[in-house]
Design a protein around this nucleic acid. Sequence first.
DNA 1: CGGTCGATTAAT
DNA 2: TTAATCGACCGC
Length: 216
Amino acid sequence: MPRPLSHRFFRRHTLQVAPDLLGCEVWVRRPGERVRRGRIVEVEAYRGFDDRACHGWRGETPRLRTFFGPGGHAFVYITYGIHAMLNFVTEGPDYPSGVLIRALESIPAADGPPLEADMRGPGLLTRAMGITRGLDGSDLRSGPVRARPGGLRPGERIATSTRVGVEYAGREAAALPWRFFIAGNPSLSRGRPTNPDRAAEFLAQRIRRRTEANHD
DNA sequence: CGGTCGATTAAT
DNA sequence: TTAATCGACCGC
């Protein structure tokens, strides 16, 4: 694949990394299998000790080892005993932060047919891409899971909303507009709020522009 | 050492 | 609206 996203890319502020991942490509190669690809259309940011929806807010535990490590690695954990969640670790080390990949769009592959499976949800996409707990901790630049630079197509806009399923974490965390998605994209996770918060959308665009200005 | 609870999904 | 399903975590 072309040059994967660098460690430097992931070791920036999580709220810059998250929107920048929209349009990028996730690439998974499992032993003896063809590469599986998808285009990122929805993500969520989880960041630090003050974000009570962030698993790491209370401190490091064995399960969160990768999450507390340096940015640029895949953090995979199981939720509800069933679903693998794919996160890209950001910032760090010793600062819990990352981006949850919530939905992928099928894209044509140069070397074969596109992945047809439904990837409109964090648990669905890991199943479709063959991502398991065993990939936890792998290096996003050189390991079996990588991200390739991408971008928005003409007319595509980034929108934000509150994160999904974090009401348990309390009002403050639940109110943060840290879900980023490509507005109106048909591959967004289903049954979820898709109405963008306009003020937050504006903020996200500003963050994005500043990031591009500092592009390496 | 046991009770509780998910960054979800699919079926009722 | 709820079952599935299990490991991590917390509290006793």
